[in-house]
Simulated assay, not measured.
Amino acid sequence: MTQRLYIDVHVVQTVPPANLNRDDQGNPKEAVYGGVRRSRVSSQAWKRASRRHFDAQAPESDRATRTKRITNELATRISLTTGLESEDAGRIAAALLAQLGLSQGKKAGDTAYLLFYGNAQLDAVAALVSERAADLAALDEKALTEAVRELPVAESFRTGHPVGVALFGRMVADIPKLNVDAAVQVAHALSTHETQLEFDYFTAVDDQNEQDETGAGMIGTIGFNSATLYRYATVGFAQLADNLGGDTEAALDALDRFVDSFALSVPTGYQNSFAHRTRPSLVAVVVRNDQPVNLVSAFEEPVVAEAGIQANSARRLAEEHITATEVWGDTPLYEAASHTFTTGEPRAKDTAETLTQAFGEPVAFSDLRTTLRARITTALEEQA
């Protein structure tokens, strides 16, 4: 069993006017922290953005899907591999999944909740009946249910997890055997400073009527704000390796993909209206063997704009890390950072120096990922 290793990922990122993650009123989510209102992006929003980012770079079979329509998805696979009509494939799919005891939704064929699974896992379930699908289709409902009762459907979902499920886990309240403990915790992204909700008042002209009528064909508003965000996530490497069947190399690959995708992904809310995609100004990783440490307390006192906010925010984060290691006696196994601040810029000089004191000389993001993998490999060898 891999001993405790936690990989903390700290990100400072500035986004322009945007509505990354809306609340029930359609406005950007917010939270009060340090006595002032902050911009907030929920952990779920950035988890999904990260998952979509690394899935886009993976083969279809290595991706994960979260849906209520698992019965229809399984039926489609059965139909494609066996040539059965969709109705017969649907009956077999329903019989196979019935043994899991999934609660049924209001719509026929849907489950009551979203189920997170790997595409390869569902392919494996479809393969269980590929050689006898025609015979199964000829059975009545009772006989069909009995014929597939002993097939290892649940086992197909308990092994061979894709990166998404291995990282973020799966919770099925009424079927504990399908649960997968998450290897990743993601904090809600929070602005390092106070923010104000603003509104974009927009009009749209009807192109067909602009010669005959004056005024707008449509009027509306969109809430937005702009913010320098602190983002944090932590990966429990032992849990990640366990979720991947004890495969250390697969866990190292999954960790690398997560760090890349967490750092570079952005939620897509209202992206066509705001084109808000930016890169982080700072990505820092810290490998620990005691416990994860969120450094959001660096911003409990909101950063005040002087010549911008992001440099002060990055410096605050570095100072908090230095303080934590000094006060609590923390000795991280590894720490490194990629950032955009240089000593050649007078306004960023103090920030760059403090970041170097906290995380060492800055490295390119690709090098950060490479050295992170090497350092964890070394730590695992030392543990062995």
Rank of each mutant, 00 (worst) to 15 (best):
D290C: 00
P176T: 06
D181R: 15
R4A: 14
A94G: 07
Q3E: 15
K177A: 15
L167A: 06
A189I: 03
G223C: 01
T67C: 04
A233F: 05
V304M: 13
G217T: 03
S50F: 06
L5H: 11
G160L: 02
V165S: 02
A133F: 01
A137Y: 02
I78V: 11
L190H: 06
E131Y: 08
A364T: 12
E85M: 12
A337T: 11
V129A: 04
G236A: 15
P332I: 03
A318M: 05
S313V: 03
R170P: 04
R373F: 05
A187H: 02
D55Y: 02
D247P: 09
S43A: 14
V205T: 13
V266W: 08
D55V: 06
A112G: 09
H276C: 10
T82V: 09
S226T: 11
V165Y: 00
Y6F: 15
S273P: 06
L128Q: 10
V180I: 14
R40N: 01
A133S: 08
D207K: 03
V148K: 01
E60D: 14
R279K: 13
E131N: 14
I322A: 08
L368Y: 06
M171Y: 10
A251S: 05
E146Y: 03
P176C: 07
Q211V: 08
A94P: 00
R51N: 04
E213G: 00
T76Q: 12
E30T: 15
R132T: 12
L20Q: 08
I219V: 15
E85R: 14
L84E: 00
T248E: 15
F341D: 07
V41H: 02
A352D: 04
A324H: 14
L252K: 01
F168P: 05
V148F: 06
T82A: 05
D135A: 15
Q357I: 08
A133M: 02
P59C: 10
S42D: 08
L190C: 07
V296Y: 05
G105W: 02
I175A: 05
S79N: 04
L178G: 09
P267V: 10
Q104E: 13
A251L: 05
R4E: 13
L355I: 09
I175R: 13
A324G: 11
P346D: 09
T221Q: 15
P362Q: 03
F224P: 06
I7F: 03
S86I: 13
L122C: 07
L240A: 11
P267C: 04
E85S: 14
A31I: 13
V153Y: 10
D23T: 01
R373S: 12
